[in-house]
């Protein structure tokens, strides 16, 4: 099976700084892959090389088996992209901008009209169809950019931090759009540093730091990685809990390795053994009748793994 997206020894240096170091990545099939990493990890650099906006020092990127570096036009034909926050010519309306995109992609005028209506509806910009883009806010422009990347209903969608510049409602809407895209047979490769966004919409995750790929795995496997490691869980109680109760009723529960009081009604516990251990601890705490009202992991499994892997790299 030809991978939908492939990076082969993709490397980029800026002088002595290595922005991306020998990235080897093969993504096959229809799914959503989160491309994670802290700022400066090399995510945008990799995506820019995958779309020929910058050139690799060595290595190559392929979309549907076609080299982006050697056949950019053919490689990008089946690909919708949103890299950084592009600007559209200010005097054009979203309709005109999408007409241009469709015409450059070789779509027929009636297809362009029909798809323009659909994608603008999708990004909630229908009522702005004929207004000038130059007057739009950053978030509105980003919606039009997302619409442009989806216009031809591409097989591969490369999104570079698509919710950048959007307000919380806009971010939630972008997540809805990406979830909607997953229902088609396409690969969505989305860079982000918002872990909750990735957990919410992605099936797999690739973690990059200092230009190196730390891992590429499914979210389910990321959860499994945590088994055996202690997970931090925040507890909230209905009424103040005494130190005695914390030590006898909470710290003594099998699986709990440490308890830290936050305030009279809140504490944080470290639980080893993954989700089964967490379930057992929760049952015991409910049974102890301490007035437990909330039992919530301090961080998601992905966040735990993310922090662990990043800190390994730092040390």
């Amino acid at each position: 099976m030809t991978p939908s997206l492939e990076a082969r020894h993709l490397t980029r240096r800026f002088g002595s700084f290595v922005a991306l170091n020998n990235l080897d990545l093969k993504v096959e099939g229809a799914k959503c892959v989160g491309f994670l990493g802290p700022n400066g990890a090399g995510k945008t650099t990799a995506l820019k090389m995958m779309t020929d906006l910058i050139f690799p020092t060595s290595g190559e990127a392929f979309i549907n088996g076609i080299s982006v570096q050697h056949e950019r036009k053919r490689a990008l034909t089946a690909c919708g992209t949103l890299i950084e926050t592009p600007e559209i010519y200010g005097s054009l309306s979203p309709r005109e901008a999408l007409e241009l995109v469709g015409a450059l992609r070789g779509m027929r005028p009636e297809e362009i009209r029909a798809r323009t209506r659909i994608v603008l509806e999708e990004v909630k910009m229908s009522e702005w169809t004929d207004q000038k883009v130059g007057r739009f806010s950053k978030g509105m422009k980003q919606r039009v950019n997302i619409a442009a990347s989806l216009l031809s209903d591409p097989e591969v969608v490369l999104l570079d931090e698509p919710s950048t510049g959007l307000d919380p409602r806009g971010m939630a809407e972008v997540r809805d759009i990406v979830r909607g895209l997953k229902k088609g047979r396409r690969l969505i490769f989305m860079s982000s540093h918002i872990l909750s966004e990735v957990v919410d919409v992605c099936d797999e995750v690739a973690l990059l730091n200092h230009g190196k790929l730390l891992f590429y795995d499914s979210l389910a496997n990321v959860e499994k990685r945590l088994t055996g490691d202690a997970t931090s869980v925040d507890l909230a109680f209905l009424r103040p809990v005494s130190d005695t109760d914390l030590s006898t009723q909470v710290a003594s529960v099998p699986g709990v390795s440490a308890v830290t009081r936050v305030d009279p009604q809140h504490a944080t516990v470290m639980i080893a053994g993954g989700p089964p251990a967490q379930a057992a601890v929760l049952e015991r705490l409910v049974g102890a009748r301490l007035g437990l009202v909330s039992f919530e992991p301090s961080r998601s499994a992905l966040e735990e793994v993310y922090l662990q892997e990043i800190s390994k790299g730092e040390s």
Binding site: K73, R74, T77, A78, L100, A103, L104, R105, G106, M107, R108, E111, R115, I118, V119, E121, E122, K124, L150, S152, D153, P154, E155, R169, A172, E173, D176, I177, R179, G180, L181, K183, G184, R185, R186
Partner: peptide
């Protein structure tokens, strides 16, 4: 928050891919 019914192509449908115009046609379009 309102949820949007996905109106993009349903599972199994082919993407809309026309024949990408040549260099000069794209230049004139642009």
């Amino acid at each position: 928050m309102t949820t949007v019914e996905p109106s993009l192509s349903p599972e199994g449908s082919a993407p809309i891919l026309g024949e990408v115009p040549g260099l000069f046609t794209q230049a004139v379009l642009l």
